[in-house]
Computed example of a mutant assay.
Amino acid sequence: MASFIVSLTYTAPVEKVDALLEDHVAWLRAGYANGHFLGWGRKVPRSGGIILARGESREAVAALAATDPFVAGGVATVEVIEWAHGYLDDSIAGLAG
Rank of each mutant, 00 (worst) to 15 (best):
M1D: 12
M1I: 05
A2S: 14
A2I: 02
S3W: 01
S3Q: 08
F4V: 02
F4C: 02
I5M: 13
V6M: 01
V6I: 11
S7N: 12
S7P: 01
L8K: 01
T9D: 10
Y10V: 01
Y10L: 02
Y10A: 05
T11K: 07
T11D: 11
V14M: 15
V14K: 12
E15F: 01
K16E: 14
K16I: 00
V17K: 02
V17W: 00
V17L: 03
V17A: 06
D18S: 10
A19R: 02
A19C: 04
A19W: 00
A19H: 02
L20A: 08
L20M: 05
L20Q: 04
L20G: 04
L20C: 04
L21E: 12
L21F: 08
L21R: 15
L21M: 14
E22M: 01
H24A: 07
H24I: 03
H24E: 05
H24D: 06
V25Q: 09
V25E: 11
A26H: 05
A26P: 00
A26F: 01
L28Q: 11
L28N: 13
R29E: 14
A30C: 04
G31M: 05
Y32H: 13
Y32D: 11
N34M: 09
N34D: 15
G35L: 10
G35K: 05
G35V: 04
H36G: 04
H36E: 07
H36N: 10
L38W: 05
G39S: 15
G39C: 11
G41A: 11
R42F: 10
R42S: 13
R42E: 13
K43H: 15
V44A: 11
R46A: 10
R46M: 12
R46V: 13
S47Q: 14
G48Y: 03
G48F: 03
G49C: 05
I50H: 06
L52Y: 13
A53L: 06
A53Y: 06
A53R: 03
A53P: 02
R54P: 00
E56N: 09
E56T: 14
E56Q: 11
S57F: 03
S57M: 06
R58W: 10
R58P: 01
E59P: 00
A60D: 13
V61R: 04
V61C: 04
A62G: 09
A62H: 14
A63D: 14
L64F: 06
L64C: 05
A65Q: 13
A65L: 08
A65E: 09
A66E: 11
A66W: 07
A66Y: 05
T67G: 12
P69Q: 09
P69T: 07
F70S: 04
V71F: 08
V71E: 07
A72H: 06
A72R: 15
G73E: 10
G74F: 01
A76C: 07
A76M: 06
A76Y: 07
A76G: 08
T77P: 01
V78W: 03
V78L: 07
I81M: 12
I81A: 11
I81G: 03
E82V: 02
W83D: 11
A84R: 14
A84P: 07
H85D: 13
H85M: 11
H85L: 14
G86I: 10
G86Q: 14
Y87Q: 12
Y87M: 09
L88N: 13
L88M: 10
S91D: 12
S91K: 12
I92A: 12
I92L: 08
A93F: 01
A93Q: 15
G94I: 06
G94C: 09
G94V: 10
G94Q: 13
L95H: 09
L95W: 08
G97A: 15
